[in-house]
Design a protein around this nucleic acid. Structure first.
Lengths: 225, 225
DNA sequence: GTAGGTTAAAAAATCGATTATCTTGTCTAA
DNA sequence: TTAGACAAGATAATCGATTTTTTAACCTAC
């Protein structure tokens, strides 16, 4: 269930892990203002947790790249920039393309089944539910499943990290995905090509898919500045 | 000076940051046994630091991938495996190759100067000094400099992380680099090709360079098991 | 003997309070 | 005015102690 950081057994059930998960979700989901300084006491309230587990979670998030830690000055939400968005999108192209090709080469029939299931769940998802959180979760799951059998734990880890960073842009503001139709169509085609083992075509479609997301993210970013 | 985690301002001078740096160095330098469980009280002694900053450092290292955190069971040094070594080496080929090509396309004359300087320092380094730590540091610096102007903060970050992971294998045991001569020669040629902006040839040499390191690491690993 | 249960010791996680550092507003002197 | 010094309050970092959970040794029943 907890697929975060592939080769890192993340604790579950502790106060520290709870606040980590929640903070991560909130940071990725855009519920903090970029650049904002985090008031630790307020966070203690918000997440109903003591100082020690909170600080441990903040430290982890800083090492992960979702927070900036400043010398004797606490923690801050990283700023957003056009340059970084471009960087992240470009890296996603490279890494997810590579992963997809390798997944298509390695994936077995269990993978095919998982992929069909993930795509189906995503398609059926009610996007108005829980402010879109449900859809976002299934969307993440779909993309995870797609590249899962790429054979590299580290590649998967980096992709996960880039997704989180990318979502800080894509999910700016309260809005939900607007181009649902097109995305669903692309997801469907990605599955088709994966099952047919057409690596080259699949990669091209993935490039296109990421590019489309990039345009959404860029628009959100520009509206937000 | 502190180039760790490119876009994360890491605090300096705090107890937490000191123990983080030292622990990282010791983990990468192979001064812990892979799979070993860390006794927190012993670490308190060893690094002369209180519990809170120590735990914060451990949490950061777990998020970074140099430690495994287990549910209510503390921290553990990740195991080593042939599969992971192959994964890391393969990812290094992809990522550093990509970074080098982009650095060669972007790098200005300041970079050329930095590169020459870094290569020179590395060549002049006394490898017997400080158990090879000095040489290791300059070696890291050289490779950092080589890819620095690649234009992607995230790519640099991933490369740094992979280097640390790779060194857990390459630096197994107390031994110092044995193939100094060959490495120096390759470093020299890398600079040459970079200055001549021969991206393709440089990348091929880099592949070869990483492959050579891989063979060393693999041998160390096999002797160590 | 061995599986299952109990418990004492050890270790991890968390809390509350203390110490150190930074921030802000005010005052003074040029 | 305004730059710099200072003090008071706020915040971050750290410590020592408490609580919770795990580990391991022991016991008992089969």
């Amino acid at each position: 269930m907890n697929n975060f950081l592939p080769n890192t057994a993340t604790p579950v059930g502790t106060a520290s892990s709870r606040v980590f998960d929640n903070l991560r979700k909130d940071l990725v989901g855009g519920r903090f203002v970029a650049g904002e300084k985090l008031a630790i006491n307020a966070l203690k309230e918000r997440y109903q947790v003591g100082l020690s587990p909170l600080r441990e979670a903040l430290n982890k998030l800083a090492a992960y790249g979702l927070l900036i830690q400043e010398n004797q000055r606490g923690f801050r939400v990283p700023k957003l920039s056009r340059e970084e968005l471009d960087d992240i999108a470009h890296m996603r192209l490279e890494m997810e393309g590579m992963a997809l090709e390798r997944a298509i080469a390695n994936g077995d029939s269990l993978w095919e089944a998982d992929l069909l299931a993930a795509a189906h769940r995503l398609k059926r998802a009610d996007i108005t539910l829980d402010k879109g959180e449900e859809w976002e979760h299934l969307h993440t799951q779909f993309h995870r499943t797609l590249v899962a059998p790429c054979g590299s734990v580290w590649l998967l880890r980096f992709i996960e990290q880039l997704h989180d960073q990318f979502d800080r842009y894509r999910r700016l503001g309260p809005k939900m995905p607007t181009i649902r139709q097109e995305l669903d169509e692309q997801h469907h085609q990605l599955v088709e090509l994966a099952l047919k083992r057409e690596a080259k075509a699949a990669r091209e479609l993935m490039d296109d898919h990421i590019h489309k997301s990039y345009e959404v993210a860029l628009k959100r970013y520009q509206e937000h500045v």
